[in-house]
Simulated assay, not measured.
Amino acid sequence: MAPSDDGPTTRQPGLRERKKRETRVALSQAAIRLCVLHGWDEVTIEQIAAEANVSVRTFRNYFAGKAEAIAASHLERMHRVADDLLARPAGEPLWDSLLHAVLGQFAPTDNSPPHHARWREGVRLMLAEPALAGEIVKANAAAQQELAKAVAQRTGTDAERDVYPKLVAAVVAAGSGVAVEHSLRADEPEPLGAVLARVFEQLAAGLPVP
């Protein structure tokens, strides 16, 4: 049977899996929202659980603490990037598909909170928190594994034995991170979508010397 123009098929998660994923996302987003708006030291696990409308016990069933909960948002977002990549048209160039997938998850609208000065400053402070660094590294490693699987499926390579899907996943993760950092720390606020577009344009061109 010929492959569909709609791209490779993906397994749809079951109801229980979706509910668990939704709870993880709600807790992670609540942790980020509270820590960005009120500061790392001012936010408790009890407050995060209440913000997400779950019990503290439920929070502890998913996360060991605030740092793990916040880092989980990055992993979830990269899961969605991988899902979006596989949903792109099969004939579309890989880097075009990756740009669309990343933009859809990192910069869905120009009116998203990261473009507000108070939010940007809060995110900068949160990301500078030492307790978060180790969890971000772990989440990023897991995210790259998931994205590598999607790249391998998209390109007909092997995520375990071939270097290419791992390299692409690592480059996408690094490029996205650089774009976020640049957008947050620029002297003049710059929409993340515009920065991501420039980053992926240069990546697709092979990073030519300026």
Rank of each mutant, 00 (worst) to 15 (best):
F200D: 03
G177Q: 00
A50L: 07
L86C: 12
D110N: 06
D96F: 00
A2Q: 14
V123R: 06
P108T: 10
S112F: 12
K20F: 04
A90C: 10
A67M: 02
L15M: 12
V209E: 06
N53V: 06
R88Y: 01
L192K: 01
H182F: 05
A50S: 13
H116N: 03
L94N: 01
P208W: 06
E42F: 00
L27A: 02
S4D: 15
D6K: 13
L34F: 03
A2I: 14
L147E: 09
K66V: 03
Q12D: 08
D96N: 10
A128M: 10
R124A: 01
L86A: 04
I70K: 03
A194W: 09
E160K: 08
S4I: 09
D158P: 11
E129L: 02
W40S: 01
L85Y: 04
E51P: 05
H116M: 02
A30M: 11
L94V: 02
A72V: 07
A179T: 08
P165V: 06
I136G: 02
A87I: 04
G39Q: 04
T10S: 13
V102K: 00
D84N: 14
L15Y: 04
L37Q: 04
A150P: 09
L147K: 10
A71T: 09
R198M: 10
G206D: 08
R80V: 08
L127V: 04
L75D: 00
G104K: 01
F106D: 00
L99G: 04
E68N: 04
T10R: 12
A90P: 01
S73W: 05
V163H: 13
Y62V: 05
D96P: 01
P189G: 11
K66C: 12
R161T: 13
A197E: 15
L132N: 01
L167M: 15
A169C: 11
R21K: 07
R33M: 02
A141Q: 14
Q145A: 14
A186F: 02
R198P: 02
S4V: 09
E51V: 07
V180T: 10
K166N: 15
P191K: 02
Y62L: 09
L184M: 06
R77M: 14
Y62F: 15
N111E: 13
M126E: 11
A131W: 01
L98V: 12
G14H: 09
E22V: 07
L75M: 05
V81D: 07
V178W: 14
Q153K: 14
P89W: 13
G91F: 03
E76M: 09
L167N: 10
S183F: 00
